[in-house]
Computed example of a mutant assay.
Amino acid sequence: MARRSNTCRGGAKLDSANELNFSDSSHFLTDGRFFHVHSTAAGKAMLAEYSEERVRKIVQQVGLPKKTEDTITSEELYEELEDIRECGYATNDEEAIKGLWAIEKTVKTPIGDICGSLNLSAPTYLYTEDMEQSAVETLKQQVSIFEDRIKTQFDEMYG
């Protein structure tokens, strides 16, 4: 009888808890899982746009479940949200998936509402501070282009 491999298509491996682990993989895949907002760069960037009162209500409803040993599960979240507000982008360093690093910036409408986000991710073994700075600049440029397109469409529709 052939032994079943613990390697998934795309190179991800199942760890002892049957969780996907990308730390030894050069490929990533989308598997349709949902993540709590406090464990992803996109979620934290969006939370940073809310008042602390609103964030506390969200946390009270859903908690701060631990996905990996690096997931924020304490008041530290509020400090990180303040840092995100100051620098304008959020990161995720293995907080949702082992071996995955991500950076994110929100996209806003002309009236200042969040309408989405742009995100770049990579395996953690490729991370460098230079890569982060390059990703920040790329995201800033692309978010600006995207927001300009939204504004143009908004202006065309509502004059």
Rank of each mutant, 00 (worst) to 15 (best):
A12I: 00
T138N: 05
T106C: 11
Y125Q: 11
Q141L: 10
E132R: 07
A17N: 11
L100P: 00
K105F: 01
E52G: 08
Y158G: 01
L20C: 00
G32L: 14
R9A: 05
E69Q: 09
K151T: 14
D93R: 09
D15I: 10
E79M: 00
T91H: 01
K105Q: 13
S23E: 13
S5L: 11
R85P: 04
R33F: 07
Q61Y: 08
Q153S: 11
G10V: 05
D24R: 12
E52N: 08
E80D: 10
T30L: 11
N92R: 11
A17M: 09
T71F: 03
C115M: 01
D155Q: 15
L126A: 13
V37H: 13
K140H: 10
A122G: 00
G88T: 08
G32E: 10
R33M: 03
L120D: 05
R9E: 15
I103S: 01
I58S: 11
L81F: 02
D31I: 13
C8R: 12
D31M: 09
Y50L: 15
R9S: 06
S144M: 12
R85A: 06
E132L: 06
Q61S: 12
D130V: 08
E137R: 13
T40R: 03
L29F: 14
S51D: 11
M1Q: 09
E79K: 03
N92Y: 10
I114G: 01
K44I: 00
H36N: 14
T71V: 07
L64I: 06
D113K: 12
K67V: 03
I103M: 01
T68N: 05
L47M: 15
C115S: 03
A90Q: 00
R4S: 06
Y78P: 01
V37Y: 10
Q141E: 15
S51K: 06
E147A: 06
D15E: 09
S117G: 07
S5A: 10
D31V: 10
E82W: 08
F154W: 14
K13S: 12
K151C: 06
E79Y: 00
W101D: 01
S16M: 07
S134E: 15
Y158S: 06
G99F: 02
T106F: 02
Y89S: 00
G32I: 13
A135K: 03
E80I: 08
Q153N: 11
G11T: 07
C115L: 10
D70S: 06
A96L: 08
E132N: 00
T68G: 04
N6Y: 08
L81W: 00
D93S: 12
D31A: 12
I111D: 14
T109C: 06
E76T: 15
A48G: 03
L77E: 03
A12V: 03
E147C: 11
Q61E: 09
G112I: 07
L118D: 02
D24Y: 13
I72W: 02
Y158A: 10
T71M: 06
P65F: 07
A122M: 03
T91I: 13
S117L: 04
C115I: 14
V55H: 02
T71H: 02
A41M: 06
E79F: 00
L126R: 10
A135W: 08
E137H: 15
P110E: 02
Y125P: 04
Y78A: 02
S5G: 07
E95G: 03
C115Q: 03
D130F: 05
Q133M: 13
T7R: 15
S39L: 04
S5N: 12
